[in-house]
């Protein structure tokens, strides 16, 4: 009994001490160094316009539907690209709901971009991402949208393609991960005549 009590005393004290070190000291040290050395990243890689308004984060996707914008992937986060309510659809491979959704999205994608009924559609264009906030679309998905965006903006396809290339994130060290086009950055740059979006320091 005495041994049990002594164990409980140690348990309570170690909980307090370890909580102070691991949950007080440690995150604060990380916070201090991160804010000093990586201020932009530590605060969410935010994009601000010239009026100082926050327009989004380079890491988080946003919804776009107009013809003159590149369209992101379908999103299952809240009402779509809700960056405080991330998540996927969680529909399984035999889900009727998922089947119906993909069918509708394929039809819409073909119509918007003037594709033939036999043209295959890039998978990322018609499936929701895991986070619902995927900032990227595949390069093929972007290329497919180029003619539409060029027409809506009365610009040459070549010019839009150059912009797509500029906002394509390559695999890290050319080996890790897959390339992707950052939709929000690309669309904001299109709106500001090619100027890259400004990030908050």
């Amino acid at each position: 009994m005495k041994e049990l009590l002594s164990h409980f005393r140690s348990a309570v004290m170690s909980t307090l001490v370890l909580a102070a070190v691991c949950c007080g000291l440690y995150p604060l040290i990380v916070f201090g160094i991160a804010q000093a050395a990586f201020r932009e990243q530590a605060n969410g890689s935010l994009i601000v316009d010239k009026n100082g308004t926050v327009r989004g984060s380079t890491l988080l996707g946003q919804g776009f539907t107009a013809d003159k914008y590149f369209h992101p992937r379908p999103s299952a986060a809240g009402n779509g690209y809700d960056a405080a309510n991330s998540g996927g659809s969680n529909f399984g491979p035999t889900s009727q709901k998922l089947y119906d959704a993909i069918k509708d999205r394929i039809a819409a994608c073909r119509k918007e971009n003037g594709l033939k009924d036999t043209d295959a559609i890039p998978a990322d264009a018609v499936t929701a991402s895991g986070s619902g906030l995927d900032p990227h679309i595949s390069v093929r998905n972007a290329e497919l949208q180029v003619p539409r965006v060029a027409r809506a903006r009365s610009l040459s396809e070549k010019r839009i393609l150059d912009m797509v290339a500029r906002f394509t994130d390559k695999p890290d060290f050319n080996i890790l991960g897959d390339p992707g086009v950052n939709v929000l950055e690309l669309n904001l740059a299109l709106d500001s005549n090619g100027a890259a979006s400004v990030r908050r320091p």
């Binding site: 992937r73 996927g88 659809s89 969680n90 529909f91 491979p93 035999t94 998922l98 089947y99 993909i102 069918k103 394929i106 073909r110 009924d117 036999t118 043209d119 295959a120 559609i121 890039p122 998978a123 990322d124 018609v126 499936t127 929701a128 991402s129 895991g130 986070s131 995927d134 990227h136 679309i137 595949s138 093929r140 994130d169 991960g177 897959d178 992707g180």
Partner: peptide, 24 residues
């Protein structure tokens, strides 16, 4: 997913539902 590929999803892309483009 063969069911989705019959609808017109590109076969080479695999199953992208619930996956992020940057990871593939």
């Amino acid at each position: 997913n063969p069911v989705h590929q019959q609808l017109g999803v590109a076969v080479a892309d695999g199953n992208m539902e619930g996956k992020e483009v940057r990871f593939g």
